[in-house]
Amino acid sequence: MTYVRLVGLYFKIGILNELQYRVNFFVQIFQSILSLIVALGGLAVVFDHTTNLNGWTSPELLAVVGVYFMIGGLINLVIQPSMQRFMEDVRQGTLDFTLVKPQDAQLLVSIRQIQIWKLVDVLIGIVVLGIGLTQVGKTVGIEQALGFGIALIAGGAIVYSFWLILATCAFWFVRIDNILVIFESMYEAGRWPVGIYPGWLQFTLTFLVPIAFAVTVPAEALTGRLTPQTLIGALALAAVMLTVSRIFWRIGMRHYSGASA
């Protein structure tokens, strides 16, 4: 219960902090619209030449784009900025201030920085997803909606653990910005269902940079493609990743010795 209150409190502080920079809201809308144009333009050009892409129709791919925007928005809302700040803190030695607080440090570093305007992406994602699903025409049953919710939570947990593991590396290697940039560009690949990629790339996008579970699997749930095995696999992977990242975080913490501060 304390944790829930803590999360709520940090969100409030984060929101108040960002509200100082209201122009950023319009900057964000501008950026979101441009990336939406690229995503939709890409779909339009592709479906000018074909009626299905590896079994996915155009409205179904619209739904994938929606999920892509939602998840990307959530990552950029809290995970990415918090982890970036955490790595900066390790570099500068200011992590000390977090560590002396009487709460779990992993929780604190994970929710500390909120880019509230990224909610625009989440909203755009929901709208696009809605439009896509309406065009698909099949009604989404309770079963699919439930599968979607579970897949989304599992995907979110996997992506979070992945970021935490990468960020924890900052305890040993002070600069890993380049690797994060690669992850961000690889995330672009998630705009398309991972099934279209050749085997080695599918493997990369599923296990090394786990985009498949974050975007494709939830979209599969909504379009009635999801097998129970995949869903169980996603949940199992989420549990494993959460545990591994927690253990890795602990090891990293022991390694932290403060710098310059």
Partner: peptide, 12 residues
């Protein structure tokens, strides 16, 4: 990414 997308279209 775009190469793979267009190869998939070509295959279809």
């Amino acid at each position: 990414v775009y190469l793979v997308v267009w190869r998939t279209v070509a295959a279809a």
